[in-house]
Design a protein around this nucleic acid. Structure first.
Lengths: 333, 333
DNA sequence: AGAGCAAAGTGAAACGGTTCGTGAGAGGGA
DNA sequence: TCCCTCTCACGAACCGTTTCACTTTGCTCT
């Protein structure tokens, strides 16, 4: 059995209150300080954060729910958020929603029963209803990357419409006019990106074509299937915007398997940066999100809520994006 | 403030003991059961796992420490372990050691003060000394993938020597004789793999060449640098075994940047499977670890320790590996 | 020397659960 | 009808901290 404060008390002859004061940085006589430190050392005493949490009504634990840990984007997010949280003395309880709304709802209950101080969520669901139990328990929530229309939550991310708009702009500058998009239509983010695409194309005076707008779930398989459809089409586009990391993964796989090559036959621009960029030939044009900044801001915002400066209004924070250049776009005549 | 058992008690008129019995699946009169369920529903009551843990001396939390979350291997591991843990009602507290021994030691203290029930670790350090505090606190520990020589811990992984041996065997079968290896020499796993390489080469009657054995830290940069050295060497090898995922990442990057191409000029075989395999041309030969199995076993073993069947002796479990074929090896005349 | 006052120390009551030893009531057999 | 047994319910103690309201200690100042 691990040592407790009572053991330290017995060894030093001091009271629990004094030990507690020492542990929390209060003033203690130098000789007592030495005494306590010696006892802690000898007993290998470590504060029981659980007991502390019980009386302080905080666990120093933050729940992080991501739509799919296997996705590179989620993994990266977990990395940054975990690091940032630790810096502030918080632990991270991560949950994988496996792209499944039911699992997501169940994960939330789990986090609530764990009494986490706050939750950061990169959601699967399109509607915020599943977050209700957390609301009822007054647990602060920060949305990352994806937002909802139907209710007001704090949210940190990028302006997806503008980001997609800029990506299409690049393609237009290379004289492409037959531009398609493959994106997710199951979450707000994807829908915004499609809007950005439509706006850019329309503003360039090009009529929108139904067949050039491919949508589906936020998974690699969708990218793969839809890219195949585009390549097989009699009106094969000259360029494609792939609206998120997973779709890009599938899309490029489809191109590699086909008789067409990039950028000779088809120009590509993707979303979200990859660690593996250097491994791929040709290197890609990509819309890059400032993941580090996003995560730092999300944690900062959450902790402000947790520490309870009762600022009511939900805050939405948008960061700008960068375009990473590559060889995946061909300039047309 | 969230509802507590006391609220349920007041609403039902029953005692705390009865509510507790209900919550833990004990027998309660049907009418009381209905009463309790109604109260829980109305109050949105959720058990406070922290308070429960305090008296039961368990947090239902497992710490998982990985050497570097950014590494694909670590991410995958976290995914499987987290999933498995949840299945058993445990939460996962994940820590990133950032390839730094000091951070690793600090993370351990963090987990101990969090009173985790057990720890699964994919270590950075080569020596087990940093795990001492956990030992003193009698927290069960399972090592995954990497092991130590100097002390006895439970460990789940693969037989690294044999895996590397088999990889070299493949190269030999394709008539390669000038075979180099790039691997990590900072941890047991890498050292074992180098041994497997040496054994296979020696047994084929080929003398070992100092210049063909490149070692360094377990990071992509090492793979990049060492591969460059090999390619620039007057005795350029015809084939290279890349001893882990990160080194492979760097190694392939170096080849792509060079005037040489794979498999025409140089044959490659790597370690650990990638999600992105399909994206890369040529597709790679790789030694594949059964990650799912490894993680399931690690969790199973840990939970057995946690539940305290006091089997003393440390257990080492080795799974077999598979070779994934690809186009990255050329058959020599 | 004695009053006054910080600074440091203390005991006890929480926090939200579990569990153990008892007690009350229902049902069954003689 | 009485006794025994079985099922549920209950009160109180406890888990390892923090914190509140005091008390003690040791100085300084007059």
């Amino acid at each position: 059995m691990a040592a407790t404060m009572r053991d330290v008390k017995n060894r030093t002859g001091l009271s629990l209150a004094t030990i507690s004061k020492y542990l929390n940085g209060g003033n203690v006589l130098p000789e007592n300080k030495v005494l306590i430190e010696k006892a802690i050392e000898e007993l290998h005493y470590e504060v029981n954060e659980m007991a502390r949490g019980l009386v302080k009504h905080q666990t120093k634990l933050v729940g992080v729910m991501v739509y799919d840990v296997e996705s590179y984007f989620s993994g990266k997010l977990l990395h940054y958020i975990g690091q940032e949280l630790r810096k502030h003395g918080y632990g991270m309880l991560s949950c994988d929603s496996c792209n499944d709304e039911e699992i997501e709802a169940e994960n939330l209950r789990f986090l609530i029963s764990r009494k986490v101080d706050g939750i950061i969520v990169l959601p699967v669901s399109r509607r915020s209803t599943f977050l209700k139990p957390a609301r009822q328990n007054k647990i602060p929530i920060i949305l990352v990357d994806r937002s909802f229309q139907d209710e007001e939550f704090d949210c940190v991310g990028i302006d997806n419409k503008i980001a997609a708009y800029r990506a299409v702009e690049i393609l237009l500058k290379h004289n492409h006019r037959d531009i398609a998009v493959i994106a997710s239509n199951v979450e707000y983010t994807g829908i915004e990106r499609i809007k950005g695409y439509e706006e850019a194309v329309t503003q360039a005076g090009i009529p929108l074509r139904e067949e050039y707008i491919k949508t589906g779930r936020h998974i690699a398989e969708v990218g793969y299937e839809k890219m195949k459809e585009l390549l097989a089409s009699p009106n094969r586009p000259t360029a494609v915007l792939m609206g998120n990391y997973d779709i890009m993964l599938g899309g490029v796989l489809a191109v590699n398997e086909s008789k067409f090559s990039c950028p000779e036959d088809i120009s590509l621009i993707g979303f979200d940066n990859l660690m593996i960029t250097g491994l791929i030939s040709p290197s890609w044009y990509m819309v890059e999100q400032p993941m580090g900044k996003i995560c730092r801001k999300a944690v900062e915002l959450l902790l402000r809520r947790v520490e309870g400066k009762e600022e009511e209004a939900p805050i939405k924070i948008c960061f700008g994006t960068k375009i990473q250049t590559g060889d995946s776009i061909r300039t047309l005549a």
